[in-house]
Design a protein around this nucleic acid. Structure first.
Lengths: 279, 279
DNA sequence: CCAAAAGTGTTCAATCTACACCCATGG
DNA sequence: CCATGGGTGTAGATTGAACACTTTTGG
């Protein structure tokens, strides 16, 4: 009863943790949520939010639970990045970590910051501090993953509020791809997308012409292939038929060298968007 | 000492297993290696080869070890598919499984079969039996992964011997993509690939014109992006500079519904090869 | 009337796709 | 000489990429 270590196994078992790479777009920059560690090891270093999987909990449920704990937000795009399991990645105990990446839309980010007593902060992806454990590798893999998917699925919408302008959509692509896109080509291409549609409403903002508002054409957060109308239709049917399975999973990248290759890879792929890059 | 369960933890720990989806091309079909289970649960069912990760062993090392144990082959392309961790996926104990897929070249497959006392057999992907556990999901995810990568990296070469003809290369693409390709377009495209080069030698086989032989242009098994020469060059430099990190990792697909979407996805992506499909 | 972002078309280049016949060999 | 797979080019369609000015609003 009072045994401090009541769980016994014939063979040694590793711990299984879930780490989250939570992306958002803030101030025109791709940012991610980090936690300052209050305990050893790596006390004072920044780390990805995460925690141990419970023994009766699905991996993705653990990721979702962590997301809620850190941000207060339960509805967000969540996708597996992969498993990271080098023996010495955690000096205390053998830990296999399954990384997920999440996307928070900018308009919900206010809620997310400071929901907890711990030191939690958004950091621009381009100016990350040194990270604890192997979290730099995880982040690199998640970013590669994100960059690839944004061109070929609807995940860009996950960064945006329910109504958005084409300029905002363009900024999502520009920020994640890290390059500027030609406005006319972008809008021409956006016009072919079946996953957004005009609301007919306008947003009147600053001292300039009001912008037409768009919204996702499909309800639900399931990111779907972009390219052609047929496929989009197929995917849509499927996704409504299997709402419960709606966590697409994905994994790419490993160490810095490999993720550099992966970056080249993503860029060189004939993504739907490649046409849009301007000089 | 005689404690049958000497490993104790404060919190319950899952077991971590590694499962392998071992692909090859045999008789013009994509096939994968399955093991007939001799013990409960799922006794008599076919399952993916796999086993538990050792406590001091890297995940990928565990995968490699399993690969050698099952096939006797240590050198093969190996890539992470992702982590599968539903609570009830193994009825005995909580098991989180990290799946890898491997590619064996046809000319080594003879070695692979029957290397063990267990019932081991190649099964065509198109006629798989019922699989134990959630292995059907794992296989679907691995296949989606494979189909996507074959269009955008050099993994096709992993199916082939060190020297091969363009027809053989075309068959790899056709088999994995599940469609026939136009010979002239394929060869035109293959001519632009920087990752293969002609050996100058010929293979004289049946009663027909001899075929020119090609070989991989880059040594080492690291699969690299295809699209443009620049990127290929970059990737090549990187890959030789980081031989140790040469296990690219990747994960996509989850359950049948999602992997169906993923299939649509892969097909709809403007892959390098799309031009080659004939009616 | 001025600043600021929204919005809009055309042209040229590159790649995609479809399609049919001759070639070299072994038997 | 014939059966078999190896090998080759071209034209039309589609998509990619570059490029600059007008419109509408708020202040």
């Amino acid at each position: 009863m009072a045994d401090p270590q009541p769980h016994r196994y014939k063979h040694p078992h590793p711990a299984v943790a879930v780490d989250l790479v939570i992306f958002t777009l803030l101030n025109g920059q791709l940012q991610l949520l980090l936690i300052e560690r209050g305990i050893e090891p790596y006390r004072g270093a920044w780390a990805l939010p995460g925690g141990f999987m419970r023994i009766d909990e699905d991996l993705v449920a653990a990721a979702q639970r962590e997301l809620v704990e850190e941000t207060g937000i339960g509805e967000a795009y969540l996708e597996q990045v992969g498993a990271f399991g080098q023996p010495k990645r955690d000096p205390r105990e053998r830990v296999v970590s399954v990384a997920y990446f999440a996307i928070l839309p900018a308009h919900k980010v206010a809620l997310a910051a400071g929901s907890d007593a711990k030191a939690v902060a958004w950091h621009p992806y381009s100016e990350l501090p040194e990270l604890a454990f192997d979290h730099a590798s995880i982040v690199a893999a998640a970013k590669a993953k994100l960059a690839e998917k944004v061109n070929r699925t609807t995940v860009a919408l996950e960064f945006l509020p329910p109504e958005f302008t084409l300029t905002e959509l363009q900024q999502v692509f520009e920020t994640i791809r890290g390059e500027t896109l030609d406005k006319r080509n972008f809008r021409k291409w956006a016009g072919t997308l079946s996953y957004i549609k005009a609301t007919g409403r306008l947003r009147r903002g600053g001292q300039h012409r009001p912008a037409a508002l768009f919204k996702p054409a499909v309800k639900g957060a399931m990111p779907i292939p972009t390219a052609s109308l047929e496929w989009t239709t197929v995917a849509t049917e499927k996704s409504s038929a299997s709402e419960a399975a709606a966590k697409a999973q994905y994994r790419r990248g490993f160490e810095d060298a490999v993720s550099a290759i992966n970056k080249a890879f993503a860029d060189s792929s004939k993504g739907v968007l490649r046409a849009l890059a301007s000089r």
